[in-house]
Design a protein around this nucleic acid. Structure first.
Length: 495
RNA sequence: GCCCCCAUCGUCUAGCCAGGUCCAGGACACCGCCCUUUCAAGGCGGAGAGCGCGGGUUCGAAUCCCGCUGGGGGUGCCA
């Protein structure tokens, strides 16, 4: 059975690059009907926190990645100790009493001489008596892995192909720290082996670690898994995507109003391409069916927020079922202070979902559909001040009082006003728009009138009108309008 | 410095493994037109890479080989 895993360390929010790794690993397991394991790598006790672990799990769940098994490395220290003991007994590991300072100066010396640094192997040949003696003195020590001389480790990467690295490039490395905690290269082997992981899918920054791990597998007499190293994700400047590039965590995008399915879909397009050309829109189920490591590109990809935005827009306007869109948008509206009725919101979204690309943007777009918070842009106020606008609005008010309101009705009314006043269609609509939305751009005014209760429309018109009609010298139109609209709290049926 | 990985429109990519059907296809972004009460959305059209450079191999190379250059990653008692 295929077993893959995602092994993040809880030292920050889930990074987009890691999220993609998780997705590919998940897709691979599901595609083969295998098992997907989540393993929290918290052996670095300095940097790992409970909070980050929680965030990590939440973000993964939000993305729709469900795991079959969960492990935390800090729960498995006994196991690592056991394996370390094995390596020690078989002579594949040895205690090293070098201090951090000593090692630091070794490194510095190498650098000065311009030669590549590797651990000197000073403690390699310590006699059992020396070791005993040092231990008795209470000197702290690490456990180092004895790297066989002259080996060239070779493996077939599922994405990169043939990779060969000589052990000359690294010296004996630490597998257990002086405080007794095991290090990454060691635990990862113990874990992958004991968990039955068959495919290690991870970022290509792990390529240099792979030979070390293979060596440990061999020392333990275990069969190494298959490796697949994904290319990194780059920022616009072609350096590794990092905080310098702005929003790089899944959390950021969630908060900005991106949908999990859209992010999932987009991330897949970064480095993987579907077998069928032309299509870019995929559900999770389709991705599971289509995914293969063979179609993962081996060169790094630049993350494009523009394209993510576009794809998110596609999900908002075409993919997501209306009811789910309502559910997704609701929390964003609530955060902005609106408490819309679901059915009402549903009706609004039906007409407006094609006019925004993120949920956050949706809140902005939908503001005119809710009472109480209308503010006016400068251009809108300027428009409202014109004589034309006043004429249009009073005509509108007059006609409105005698008939029902609907989208079609508004169109008819606008046309009548246009004729009667001898204006261009544009001028009529501009006045209505400014008065009803506070902006000169946005969703269709007819849509607004169709959905908004008639009394709310009347209210907005009346107030714009009465104030602009009885203007006192000291009052700027802005002050008049704003003050007025802010005073109005609720409108029946809206909150 | 040393080691490893990578290289097709601005960006994501198809094509490369099994050389000709590719004077290189799609998508985002961009430009124009249409629709239109605005911004979008939508529809239609356009521009944009001779496939990093230089050598080979071959009748023929984006596709195979070598070198160079460029970019990225690694070089920890981080993961």
């Amino acid at each position: 059975m295929v077993v893959s895993r995602f092994a993040p360390s809880p030292t920050g929010y889930l990074h987009l690059g890691n999220a993609r790794t998780a997705i590919f690993s998940y897709l691979f397991a599901r595609h083969h009907g295998g098992k997907f394991i989540l393993r929290v790598e918290d052996t670095d006790r300095e940097r790992s926190t409970q909070e980050f672990e929680q965030m990590l799990l939440q973000d993964l769940q939000w993305l729709g990645l469900e795991w079959d098994e969960f492990y935390r490395q800090s729960d498995r220290f006994d196991l690592y100790k056991e394996y370390a003991q094995k390596l020690l007994e078989s002579g594949h590991a040895y205690p090293c009493f070098c201090t951090v300072e000593e090692l630091e100066s070794e490194r510095k010396r190498a650098e000065e001489k311009g030669v590549p640094y590797r651990y000197s192997g000073k403690c390699r040949a310590l006699t059992p008596q020396q070791v005993e003696g040092y231990k008795k003195e209470g000197r702290p020590y690490t456990l180092r892995f004895r790297v066989p001389d002259g080996r060239v480790v070779v493996f077939e990467d599922l994405i990169k192909g043939h990779i060969s690295i000589s052990v000359e490039d690294f010296g004996d490395f630490v597998i257990v720290r002086s405080d007794g905690t095991p290090t990454y290269n060691f635990v990862v082997v113990v874990d992958d082996a004991t968990m039955g992981v068959t495919h290690v899918i991870r970022g290509e920054d792990h390529i240099p670690n792979t030979p070390k791990q293979i060596l440990i597998y061999e020392a333990l007499g275990l069969q190494p898994p298959r490796f697949a190293h994904l290319p990194v994700i780059l920022g616009e400047d072609r350096s590794k995507l990092s905080k310098r590039h702005g929003a790089v965590s899944v959390r950021n995008y969630r908060e900005e109003g991106y949908l999990p399915d859209a992010l999932f879909n987009y991330l897949c397009l970064l480095g993987w391409s579907p077998p069928e050309e032309g299509k870019e829109l995929f559900s999770k189920e389709e991705l599971i069916r289509l995914f293969s490591l063979e179609r993962v590109n081996s060169s790094p990809a630049v993350f494009s927020k523009e394209k993510l935005r576009w794809l998110n827009g596609v999900y908002i306007r075409e993919v997501l079922p209306l009811d789910r869109l309502v559910e997704e948008l609701l929390p964003f509206l609530e955060r902005a202070g609106y408490r819309p009725d679901k059915d009402y919101l549903r009706r609004v979204l039906q007409k407006t979902r094609d006019s925004f690309e993120t949920l956050k943007e949706g809140v902005q777009r939908l503001r005119p559909f809710f009472a109480g918070e209308l503010t006016y842009s400068e251009e809108a106020l300027k428009t409202l001040q014109t004589q034309q606008a006043t004429a249009v609005l009073s005509a509108f008010l007059h006609k409105l009082q005698q008939r029902e309101l609907s989208g079609e009705g508004v169109k008819a009314i606008a046309k009548e006003i246009q004729k009667e006043l001898g204006l261009k269609a544009k001028e009529v609509w501009h006045a209505l728009r400014a008065c009803l939305t506070g902006e000169l751009e946005g969703v269709g005014v007819d849509i607004l009138c169709e959905v908004l209760p008639k009394e709310e429309v009347l209210g907005r018109v009346e107030r714009a009108l009465s104030k602009s009609g009885h203007r006192r010298p000291a009052d700027t139109p802005q002050a008049l309008l704003c003050e007025d609209f802010h005073r109005r709290e609720d409108s029946p049926g809206l909150s």
